[in-house]
Amino acid sequence: MTTILLAILIGAAFGAVLDRIGATNPNWIIRMLNLTSLHLMKTILLAIGVGSILMFAGQMAGLVDVGHMSVKAVYVGVAIGGLLLGAGWAASGYCPGTGVCAAASGRYDAWFFIIGGLLGAAAYMLSYPFWKATGLLSGSTMTLGAVPGADYPALINLPGDVVGLAMGVLFVIVAFVLPERLAGQGAPVAAQ
């Protein structure tokens, strides 16, 4: 029951924040991807940085359970799937999470995105044996450094919590350094 309560609280907070930062608005997503306004990119980079710093600092202080980490495997399909997702994301202005939130906020096109998404996921379910047979789905989990208390293999031989903290700081710095736009002319689209 506690788990369901947490799902409701964290899920609702996530949906509300996605809405308030403009991520549920395809205009902001597309302006980020055609590089005419990087405002949302700066928001996301800062969020990843803040999340990373708090999580790894919390682990170092013994306040955050390392067992709550969940690292996904690296395999060739990650890159192919990433390319596909990127193309569809740019065409529609939605990704899975922001699509469902946008549909809830009343956008008609987001409901078409969800129907397309359900069919795309179903198509993958049916074609899974093909991908499995190609061997492109096999790989292993891996983190940048070796996270103490977790048994993920590491890419570089450094303490993973320190590396994680440093990466978090790097994300925050990039968020601040990134200009408001890289393409187009004139003042960036104003934000409140």
């Binding site: 996904k72 495997a73 395999y75 399909g77 990650v78 890159a79 192919i80 799937g81 990433g82 390319l83 596909l84 997702l85 990127g86 193309a87 569809g88 994301w89 065409a91 529609s92 202005g93 939605y94 990704c95 899975p96 999470g97 922001t98 699509g99 008609y108 096109d109 987001a110 078409f112 995105f113 969800i114 129907i115 397309g116 998404g117 359900l118 069919l119 795309g120 996921a121 198509a123 993958y124 379910m125 991908w131």
Partner: peptide, 25 residues
């Protein structure tokens, strides 16, 4: 709406192939 539908199809096919999406990965 056709573009959003096709985009959704490709996004979710890609996300499942990759094992996650913008949130998870």
């Amino acid at each position: 709406y056709a573009m959003a539908f096709m985009g959704g199809f490709v996004v979710l096919y890609g996300a499942r192939l990759a094992g996650g999406c913008t949130s998870g990965h």
